[in-house]
Design a protein around this nucleic acid. Sequence first.
RNA 1: CGGGGCAUAGCGCAGCCUGGUAGCGCGCUACACUGGGGGUGUAGAGGUCGUAGGUUCAAAUCCUGCUGUCCCGACCA
Length: 490
Amino acid sequence: MAKKPKTAITPVRSDNYPEWYQQVIKAADLAENSSVRGCMVIKPWGYGIWENIRTHFDAIIKKRGVQNAYFPLLIPKSYLEKEAEHVDGFAKECAVVTHHRLEDDGAGGLKPAGELAEPFVIRPTSETIIGESFSNWVQSYRDLPLKINQWANVMRWEMRPRLFLRTSEFLWQEGHTVHATAECAATEASEMLEIYANFAENMLALPVIMGEKTPDERFPGAKHTYTIEAMMQDGKALQAGTSHDLGQNFAIASDIKFSNQDGHVVHAHTTSWGISTRLIGGIIMAHGDDDGMIVPPKVAAQQVVIIPAVHDEADREAIMEKCLGLKLVLETISFDNIMISAVIDDRDEVTSTKSWNWIKKGIPVRVEIGKREIEGNQVFFKRRDESPREKHIMPEDEFLGSIADILLSIQNNLLERAKSYRAQKMKKIDSLDEIFNYFKSEDAGFANIPHSLWDEGLSEKMKTDFSVSPRCLPIIDGELSDRLIIARSY
RNA sequence: CGGGGCAUAGCGCAGCCUGGUAGCGCGCUACACUGGGGGUGUAGAGGUCGUAGGUUCAAAUCCUGCUGUCCCGACCA
């Protein structure tokens, strides 16, 4: 018999963090590489998280008066050329469609035939094509503000793809708004940033730093780029969401203008903001442990797995009946306005194997139902935020009465845990020597330094010697700080 | 795009140096025993060794090109 590993995932985080990350994705059955370069297949357990992110975020923006719409995947190359900085920023990572037909190549294969007069790029982001529509939709100040969102896939031909964090194709939402004044656009961009920050903390248990990007890290063509930065367990930063105040740059490029109350025709002010499937990578790296994934209850595809433990075939029917009953009742219960979803794992496997499978997937609560539970009218369960050895036994009524609190407590524990390791790996530093010293360590985290220290020379040195870049100037109580957060990043 | 590693069964790998009938572990299938911490046994299925070419009587093995993948770098709203 093979020796049981102490942890479900090999290697452990402390041995090889990048490899651990990939192993967790595999063990949790979240996604896999496809045969298409740089593109991933998101499997049900991973896609379920995205569906929940989508559902909850969609509700939030709709309350703000944002409407969903859909724009084309293909963008005429010339559109992209309208905004000079935008071209520079995205040109290198665009996939280009140059032909529109395939025909027999005479050798049993197919070859592209009709060459397009003007090539299309596959959207790397949709500012330009949406701007084209907006220019028609907006005529009067009465049409503003215009708030549109689309849930879509985009494509960026990345040099080095990593599952969820940087894939050639990924899923996201991109919000695009048009405003009459610079102030309105600025407010929209700031409010969306706060919404992202709250969403990350409340739904994903992911504490983030809100801030503004320095000019060199800005979205190409933006006036201000705001970001939420999360810390992963290796101390690296992950940009988890962005909001851009585009000023009039894109309005001018796309000719979005309107008649104001004075009868003058003026260019509008626009914003755009997005979150993507990258968030799932963030969840993995923020919460996962050496036994695999830990999914925050609020975004888990299922919160509870019920595992029947049948020793004696004679008990099977009674056990299955109890499992089914439990599932039905659980699914009438909600926690923080989210309906619980439960799954019965009735695969023909040894109970412990099933249990470990679900540990690796990171389902918040595992329930095991056997003869004992039926006789004692009780529920045996374990929590993913606790050690796999820790058991709980509760009368069934009590369990059903407290499951909502249990899930909320798991959600909260994940957030507190993440906050605590972030606090440990965040350091306020005021001198150059200390900065160099700090980042000599491989597992350095975020350094909080005076913005005034950051000049071109330091930037260059930090980048080449330490792979450290500026993450953001934190925004605290609506005010831009004079400090700068720098860190290694994904 | 630069430097390096790897490519053999679904997954993980050995075999290659020194060319000669395709191997192991896990997983999978069937049956039985099992089952509350990753179980046991028996019997099976599954691979034109990434791809194209070269050397050779003979290539998984040697040589060349290509492709994919991983790591480091560059790049990354």
